[in-house]
């Protein structure tokens, strides 16, 4: 079947806190829709087969390789891309940690890596180093050797823990 012969339909997604609607093919990958149709080019594609993790986004707070998800599978869920982390202006704590710890080199895997780490920290706030390393196993970085990324994520977990205990003390 040539690309023109494929039926198209209206797809409504909830991306970075906003509802968006596009006409899409049933077989369009979520990564393609986010990047090429919605212009969210912070999302990178490195392999289109779920091996490199560059296209990682959050789906209801869970990190997902968006090249392995069809756009129509993403209806009714909350999608967060790297563009959605900086809402309100400045860098998120995690993004700042990536800079401070030298966890960024060429920057191509970085958006996916940040989203994978963000998803991990939301579900596992304790910042266990071994758990962080395994959480990032699906994201390939060819520049940094990973350790500095793990350092950055670990420090952000500590910062969030400290924020949490400060907030609890203030509340108590």
């Amino acid at each position: 079947m040539t690309p023109d012969a494929i039926p198209r339909d209206r797809l409504t997604l909830w991306v970075n806190g906003r509802e968006v609607s596009v006409i899409a093919d049933p077989h369009d990958r979520l990564s393609h829709i986010l990047r090429d149709r919605l212009g969210l080019t912070g999302l990178k594609e490195g392999c289109c087969e779920g091996e490199c993790g560059a296209c990682t986004v959050l789906v209801d707070d869970h990190p997902v390789a968006s090249c392995l998800m069809l756009g129509f599978q993403a209806e009714g869920v909350r999608i967060t891309t790297i563009e959605g982390l900086t809402q309100g202006g400045g860098l998120s704590g995690l993004q700042q940690a990536f800079l401070t710890y030298g966890a960024v080199q060429c920057g191509f895997c970085t958006p996916g890596m940040v989203m994978a780490a963000e998803g991990h920290l939301r579900a596992n706030p304790d910042g266990d180093r071994a758990a962080i390393r395994h959480a990032l196993a699906g994201n390939i970085c060819r520049c940094t050797g990973f350790a500095l990324i793990v350092d950055a994520v670990e420090s952000e977990a500590e910062r969030r823990q400290a924020d949490l205990s400060n907030a609890m003390e203030a509340g108590a």
Partner: peptide
């Protein structure tokens, strides 16, 4: 000094315009 990359903010925010990024 251990200074962060001068283009680091663009990279961690996904704003860096790689070759295939501009519409």
């Amino acid at each position: 000094k251990r200074l962060a990359l001068i283009d680091g903010v663009e990279k961690v925010t996904g704003q860096m315009r790689f070759a295939a990024d501009d519409a």
